[in-house]
């Protein structure tokens, strides 16, 4: 028999991991990733079955989905969006740009990867990644929402900078036919 306190805690953990409200911030990407993120909410991928709601207000969000390479103009905005979110929260970097600048790496206005600005928990590679894999990334971040970051560190849970790397799938490797 577990005490009511333990039951309540289990319920809270469950609720926190089953209600990921996402905040999407485009940090200078090309729209490809952003559209695919919206696509996860559409009938075919039905992200709402995991409790996902796309909220506009960072302060109501749990998971920050960032796309695009951070640039000099939006770095501060990204940082403030992240700071406005309440713990427990997680950051998922969607797309190659968000991981390291992608195709834009080295371009004049590019900082190169959002990891420079906010602690990223999950990287979802791809240019753009398919909606399935964006969802996979969100799901990979769910366990991190059970506890606030500080509690996570104290109890030896997943550390703040743990990275879940999703390998590219076979069908996503584009082969150019030899002419």
């Amino acid at each position: 028999m577990r005490g009511p306190r333990a039951l309540w805690q289990a319920w809270v953990r469950r609720s926190r991991t089953k209600s990921p409200w996402i905040v999407h911030f485009d940090c200078g990407g090309c729209n490809g990733c952003d559209i695919e993120i919206l696509d996860t909410l559409m009938p075919r991928f039905s992200a709402e079955r995991f409790g996902v709601i796309n909220v506009g207000d960072p302060r109501q969000g749990d998971i920050l989905l960032v796309t695009g390479p951070a640039n000099l103009r939006n770095a501060a905005v990204l940082r403030s969006v992240y700071d406005q979110m309440a713990e427990p929260k997680a950051v998922v970097a969607v797309g190659s740009c968000a991981a390291h600048g992608g195709v834009f790496r080295g371009a004049p206005n590019i900082l190169g990867g959002v990891g420079e600005l906010v602690p990223v928990d999950v990287f979802v590679p791809g240019c753009p990644p398919t909606p399935e894999r964006i969802l996979e990334g969100v799901i990979a971040a769910l366990p991190l929402l059970a506890e606030p970051r500080t509690a996570r560190q104290a109890t030896g849970g997943p550390s703040p900078m743990s990275i879940v790397m999703l390998e590219p799938r076979e069908e996503e490797v584009v082969r150019v036919p030899a002419s």
């Binding site: 200078g28 371009a107 206005n109």
Partner: peptide, 22 residues
Amino acid sequence: GYVHRGIEAEAERRPYDEDLPL
């Protein structure tokens, strides 16, 4: 300017065919 990446300038540094994916 929030999504400015400097693509035009970057395109001037890459070969013609590499500019295509950019």
